[in-house]
């Protein structure tokens, strides 16, 4: 099952009710790599979280495949995220006391018993493909680059259709960022997943199929990067 994205008339309000992001129309075919750029505070991350169904109060239509995510109840929306999305955050958000394998296989803890072994196995394979072999070590002793690799392995462990990344290279030095971009893009392309990455990092945006700009709370222009 692939999940093309179709957004129509999306409006995300702040707690006082004023719209902080509006998207009239946005379509992303399944399996494409899309960058989201824009000035700080313009609403890039808001767009990412709204697409993940994390903004309560968002209006409009966010359709992933046949599923209108904003119309789902909180529990169903959470379950949809668990099944279809992998998420990567700027500052990794790992459990410091868990090992790399423990963090990468985190989502197995709330999956059905029969699915757990598969998730754990994929988490270990993901870590290996990302060059992390010392998986029993607690991530507290890992470098930033290594941590973000663990986060990528975690995002992919349950074999999601879509990877949502919020500034995945912002906390890394150049070398580590470039290495991560290479590995992440390769993994996503090889598995035919959709990647939507919010970033200021031109090295990352250059590797995307398309780049969407968000300026002053509006998805302003849609640039095709690759044919």
């Amino acid at each position: 099952m692939t999940l093309p994205l179709s957004v129509r008339g999306l409006s995300v309000p702040n707690p006082r009710g004023r719209a902080i992001l509006t998207v009239d129309e946005l379509d992303i075919p399944a399996g494409s790599l899309v960058g989201v750029r824009g000035p700080s505070g313009a609403g890039k991350s808001t767009l990412l979280y709204a697409l993940a169904g994390l903004w309560s109060g968002a209006k409009g239509a966010v359709r992933w495949g046949e599923t209108e995510i904003l119309a789902l109840s909180d529990a169903r929306r959470t379950a949809f995220r668990a099944d279809h999305f992998g998420m990567i955050f700027q500052d990794f958000l790992l459990f410091e006391e868990l090992s790399a394998a423990g963090n990468a296989g985190l989502v197995s803890l709330f999956r059905r018993r029969r699915d757990r072994a598969g998730v754990t196995k994929r988490a270990r394979q993901g870590l290996a493909r990302l060059g992390l072999t010392d998986t029993p070590r607690a991530v507290a002793s890992f470098s930033g680059g290594e941590r973000q690799r663990v986060a990528v392995a975690r995002a992919l462990a349950h074999d999601p259709h879509v990877l949502l990344a919020d500034e995945p290279t912002a906390s890394l030095h150049r070398e580590a960022a470039d290495a991560l971009i290479d590995d992440m893009v390769k993994l996503v392309r090889d598995s035919g997943k959709t990647l939507i990455a919010v970033s200021h990092d031109l090295a990352l945006l250059d590797r995307m199929d398309r780049v969407v700009s968000v300026i002053d709370g509006r998805v302003d222009c849609d640039v095709e990067v690759r044919a």
Partner: peptide, 16 residues
């Protein structure tokens, strides 16, 4: 609370 928010974002059910 950040870890909890992360878990929820990753799709962890409320009961978990």
């Amino acid at each position: 609370q950040r870890q909890v928010a992360m878990l929820r974002a990753l799709g962890a059910p409320r009961r978990f």
